Computed example of a mutant assay.
Amino acid sequence: MKKAKKLLQDLLSRSLNTEQIHYVGREVDPSFDLAEVSGFGDHIVIPRQVAAQCVIQYFSARDKLRDFIAKLIMLEGYGGSGGIIKLKGIEPILNELRESGFVLDREKGAFVRDQAQSKTQDWGFMREGQEYRLAFASLDIVGSSELVRTNVKVDVETTIRTLRDFVGSHVEFNNGRIWFWYGDGGMAAFIGDSCVQSAVMSCLGILAYLPVYNITRNALREESDIRLRIGVHYGSVEYHGDTSKMHSEDMERASRLEDRYGVPNSIMLSETAYNLLPDELRKYFQGAGSADFGSLYQSLTI
Rank of each mutant, 00 (worst) to 15 (best):
G143N: 12
R133I: 15
P92S: 09
L104G: 05
K108Y: 07
F125E: 06
G83P: 05
A137I: 01
L94C: 03
L75N: 08
K64G: 11
G77M: 03
G80I: 00
G83W: 02
S144N: 06
L139C: 10
Y132I: 04
R149H: 14
Q57N: 09
R133L: 13
F102S: 00
R149G: 06
E96C: 15
V148T: 14
G80Q: 00
Q121A: 13
K71M: 09
K119C: 06
L75P: 05
I90T: 13
G109W: 09
A116H: 11
I69M: 07
K108I: 10
Y78D: 11
F111Q: 06
L134E: 11
F102I: 11
G89Y: 02
R149F: 12
D122K: 05
T120W: 08
T120S: 09
K88P: 08
I84L: 12
A70I: 03
V103Y: 01
S100A: 10
E91I: 15
E96F: 15
S118T: 13
F125R: 00
G109C: 06
D67V: 04
E99H: 08
G79K: 14
L97M: 00
S118K: 15
S144K: 04
G77F: 00
I84N: 06
S118E: 15
V112R: 10
D105L: 02
